[in-house]
């Protein structure tokens, strides 16, 4: 039987005096596990995220006894303040990756600590929200019991629009797979001969797959660099906060959607180069892959996988 949830609109004022609106989802009193998750959305949508999936996840977690706070950072969703106007989304996302929502998140943490004394506080970040969560929680690290970071982007968004060889790894795989399926069908050859197939996309995808496979194998077997990121695009803010987490031994779960282009970058630039080579230092970090899940967690099965992974991780051991 599902016990009724309680929902409440919360209002937190940030240092600039803007009211941030959020939703507190609480389990039924009989079911309260005294665990609290502060959920940080990516920053480019609203507190429910694409397909309202963070709302769905919050409801499922609350059914299992966990209290969840979701909120809109300033300039997003219902909250007050403005961020930018008429800028390319990648530039806006860069600002998020540089921690522009840190102060908002900090205010929400303080609000939560005051309202829920004695609760175990976890952070749930998604995409850019991972950075907001890490940057803010670093200043209240003694109050944080753990991080759950979904689709963590370890590299900063490029200043330039994606070039031909910047096709994401998953996109390249899929293009290759689809064209391979088509080309074993004789009818599809007609399209190719008539020039209707996107040959550039096919060859670029093959090039990306070759380069990425080579890169992955080399790093796995030959990389002997320092135990620090060597990619100039690696997000320094993430790196700095990760050092703190490692030092304080804060449990951290990286939830990586299998069908996400960023997962490849995470694996190559962070997991293979750093995590796998310093297992002792990062012993509290765990990587969990979400099967058949895309970056935006658009499919119902993926959402269930997210909820189950979070619950299994929180209640591990």
């Amino acid at each position: 039987m599902v016990l009724e949830l309680q929902k409440e609109v919360i209002r937190v004022t940030n240092p600039q005096g803007h009211i941030l609106y959020g939703i507190l989802t609480r389990p039924h009193k009989k079911n309260d596990s005294k665990q609290l998750i502060i959920s940080c959305q990516s920053g480019v949508v609203a507190k429910g995220e694409i397909g309202d999936h963070l709302r769905w996840v919050a409801d499922r977690l609350a059914e299992q006894g966990i209290t969840v706070i979701r909120f809109d950072q300033h300039g997003t969703g219902d909250s007050q303040g403005e961020c930018d106007q008429d800028v390319p989304i990648r530039l806006f996302f860069q600002k998020i990756q540089d921690g522009c929502f840190k102060d908002d998140t900090l205010m929400v943490i303080d609000w939560a600590i005051q309202r829920f004394p004695g609760y175990d506080i976890f952070f749930l970040g998604e995409c850019g929200g991972c950075i907001s969560a890490l940057a803010a929680a670093a200043e209240r690290i003694k109050n944080v019991q753990g991080f759950i970071l979904i689709a963590m982007p370890v590299l900063r968004f490029s200043d330039e629009i994606r070039g031909p060889l910047k096709i994401g790894n998953h996109d390249a795989k899929n293009t290759g797979k689809q064209y391979f399926q088509k080309l074993i069908n004789p009818k599809s050859w007609g399209r190719l001969v008539r020039g209707k197939s996107d040959l550039k996309l096919i060859f670029d995808s093959i090039a990306v797959l070759c380069v990425n496979s080579f890169r992955s194998v080399c790093i796995k077997n030959l990389f002997q660099g320092p135990f620090a990121p060597d990619n100039p695009s690696f997000n320094q803010l993430f790196w700095d906060n990760l050092q703190l987490i490692a030092r304080e031994k804060i449990p951290t779960c990286f939830l990586l959607p299998e069908l996400d282009n960023e997962t490849f970058e995470f694996n190559v630039e962070f997991k293979q180069k750093i995590l796998n080579r310093q297992k002792k230092r990062y012993s509290t970090c765990e990587v969990i892959y979400l099967p058949a899940t895309d970056h935006s967690i658009m499919f119902l099965e993926s959402r269930m996988a997210v909820v189950n992974s979070i619950l299994n991780w929180i209640y591990r051991g």
């Binding site: 899929n174 399926q181 658009m298 119902l300």
Partner: peptide, 28 residues
């Protein structure tokens, strides 16, 4: 198609799913 590489799926298959009472994800 983009996420799972299912290039052969057709509209009538989706309608069949809907007729069976299933829901489909439209941008989540």
């Amino acid at each position: 198609r983009d996420y799972f590489g299912k290039s052969s799926i057709k509209e009538d298959v989706i309608w069949d799913q809907l007729n069976k009472g299933e829901s489909i994800s439209v941008y989540g």
